[in-house]
Design a protein around this nucleic acid. Structure first.
Lengths: 247, 247
DNA sequence: GGGGGGTTTCCACTGGGTGGAAGCCGTGCC
DNA sequence: GGCACGGCTTCCACCCAGTGGAAACCCCCC
């Protein structure tokens, strides 16, 4: 049954990137002998690899397949040079995320030398209601999806986390109007981020770009134009229609 | 059966990143109804996604899982800033590859603005005998593995491709001795590359770094120190023992 | 030497996946 | 409009592949 394979693979996470056979068996709830055979199959195919110490981790075949997702293929390739420039120009951490399920999935992040270490790495997930990229993605999502998210329990990461649906609705409207959002101390008390939308050829928002800065020492407002300009640059390289210049 | 799932997923490639249900059925050799159910399972889990036009492509869940491979996790994260610096300093394309099966798998590549477009993208495979990164990885692999590769049929990509086992053995020895290799017109007539090994804390070679340059207009020898220094930098950041300075 | 944790192998049973077939839907052609 | 075609979805009785309990194996540590 396919679901059992998924149960096995779901046992792997950033927190637990490597598991032994019996750990896998327990984590997936599958009998040991079943786990053993399945893991052998997965390993033969290359989805898993066995380390010298006996633990299994995700193998290159899976990585290779994963790199075929159009999201990472076109968007990431296009965005990378722009992100590098933004990283160099601002000397801050830069991150690109897409909407997946009810979370934002970080598909690339560049760490600036000397900048604060970002909690998130490539492949990690961020909440929609409490991160810059999340708010941007949510703001441009299907309205009924927005309501479903706002209606669900919103985790309060810090004392500053916005969990009021009313307040969040305002924030989403502001984000759409302004073309960016500044998120302060929503997940961790030590960081803020400025995020802006990335659009594809249809003009629909497919990703969010953000710069993550420490809570002190940087005037976030000075970074807004850089983030917006970079997001527009990526959008343009994807063939997005050029937004009117207002006024 | 797990193998059937693999057959389905194997149908996806860089050449065919999206397939319809019936294409999948034919490519995998599975009956249509079986394919249908499996694809539904895979889609529910997130391994596949369905596009508006009905075609399926690899989904974000698979990408996310793939990004858990230690290779891409530690090595890539560590190597990225070094690679960016090398890319900036040389204004050439930079690539990082690991050994997987009998090929080199490119796990990151950075395109310099204005440099020639590289044929390879992240996630693509390169032959061991006919690429800079391939030769470096082969040179430091298990000797009996080397012989198996040299004994297998070696594809002749261009008129300049080295396919003589005797010549290749010499080249591998030179690569080990010199700590780098220059590969000229081995895959395409238009490009050359300079490659050097990346070592982990054990001192064993786990990856190869290369700069890819057009066949004219650049003196490759001037790039050798940059590539070697960067490869050593990455190795050092991974905790590799510092190589003696000779003399 | 013996206990404990993990791993590998074996094999008879059984229920979940299988896949042929029929029905559905959109499209293009007469 | 009607028909044919290709692709997609659903259904269900059958049957054999995957299942999982159990026993053996291995290695480390007390």
């Amino acid at each position: 049954m396919a679901n059992r394979i998924f149960r096995l693979l779901d046992a792997f996470s950033q927190a637990r990137p490597a598991l032994t056979l019996s750990e896998l068996s327990r984590a997936s709830g599958l009998p040991l002998s079943t786990t053993h055979r399945m893991v052998a199959d997965l390993t033969r195919w290359g989805a898993l690899q066995r380390r010298d110490d006996g633990a299994y981790h995700v193998g290159l075949r899976l990585w290779e397949l994963g790199s075929l997702t159009p999201g990472s293929l076109r968007l990431r390739e296009n965005a990378m040079p722009f992100m590098e420039d933004l990283c160099t120009a601002t000397q801050q951490n830069v991150q690109l995320a897409v909407l997946d399920g009810r979370e934002a999935l970080s598909i690339e992040r560049l760490a600036a030398r000397g900048a604060v270490t970002m909690a998130t790495r490539t492949g990690s997930r961020l909440p929609l209601h409490a991160s810059g990229v999340g708010l941007v993605l949510l703001a441009h999502a299907d309205p009924e999806f927005q309501e479903r998210v706002l209606a669900s329990p919103l985790h309060r990461y810090t004392e500053r986390t916005n969990t009021s649906p009313v307040r969040l609705r305002e924030l989403l409207a502001d984000t759409r109007r302004d073309g960016y959002v500044i998120s302060v101390q929503q997940i961790e008390l030590i960081s803020r981020s400025i995020a802006a939308p990335v659009r594809d050829a249809d003009g629909s928002v497919i990703a969010a770009l953000s710069v993550v800065v420490p809570v002190e020492g940087v005037d976030v407002r000075t970074l807004v134009p850089a983030v917006r300009a970079t997001a527009l640059g990526i959008s343009r390289s994807l063939g997005a229609p050029i937004a009117g210049r207002g006024g």
